[in-house]
């Protein structure tokens, strides 16, 4: 999957003082298939906006976004739904977990419409991220760092050509962040998928990515 931005700028950023950006309002920016990108910026520079626009959640922008040569503003509800089940996965900054469900139920919820991972594979991933003990607990009572790991595993439960990860290690210590990053990278490699990661600052655990300054 190739994602191409042309002169993209979110409307709320229009009135802001902007420095040099490698993303906003560039005539053409391609996210090539299978590559990984790190989008780095301070708060308020539009990291979440960028990922939300690509994922089709926000439509308040100027410019154009293409996924494999089709303008995403022309995609219908049905097409987005298919894209989000089979080609684009998103780890939300706000996680979007259901507090009243257990961690496992949250993961299964996504897996139920994709049937991508087996129960065993889910258990394995949880084991790698060290949250297998919490899987049967209600998500609402887990720490934010634990919830982030649940959201990561959930995002793995679907086929994708690109993974959008929005500050997904922010509440993890270095060790857990590394474990999570490795899991993500492996999954991306296995699926031959690209990755766009947003982060406040370049963390040590993130390697081999092309950096983009917002």
């Amino acid at each position: 999957m190739t994602i191409r931005l042309e002169y993209l700028i979110p409307l709320p950023l229009l009135d802001q003082q902007r420095g040099e950006s490698e993303v906003w309002e560039t005539s053409r920016l391609n996210f090539e298939p299978g590559l990984s990108y790190l989008v780095e910026a301070a708060s308020g520079r539009g990291k979440t906006s960028l990922l939300s626009i690509i994922y089709g959640l926000r439509k308040d922008y100027r410019g154009k976004v293409f996924i494999d040569e089709s303008d995403i503003s022309t995609l219908g509800e049905k097409e987005w739904s298919v894209l989000r089940k089979t080609r684009l996965s998103f780890i939300f900054q706000g996680l979007e977990l259901f507090d009243e469900l257990t961690a496992m139920e949250n993961i299964r919820l996504k897996n139920s419409i994709t049937r991508h991972k087996s129960e065993k594979e889910i258990q394995e991933m949880a084991g790698r991220l060290d949250i297998d003990d919490f899987l049967q607990r209600k998500t609402g009572i887990l720490s934010f760092g634990q919830q982030q790991r649940v959201a990561i595993i959930r995002a793995m439960c679907q086929p994708f050509d690109y993974l959008l990860a929005d500050e997904c290690f922010s509440h993890m210590d270095h060790k857990n962040g590394k474990l999570a990053y490795d899991l993500i990278s492996e999954e991306c490699k296995a699926q031959d998928a690209g990755l766009i990661l947003s982060s406040l600052n370049s963390s040590e655990e993130i390697t081999s990515s092309k950096k983009l300054i917002l």
């Binding site: 994922y55 959640l57 739904s81 989000r84 939300f92 259901f98 919820l109 419409i113 994709t114 679907q158």
Partner: peptide, 15 residues
Amino acid sequence: QKIKRLHKLGFHYRE
């Protein structure tokens, strides 16, 4: 809110 969240996760409104 839940419906919007499900939609974000890729659920079609029919589902």
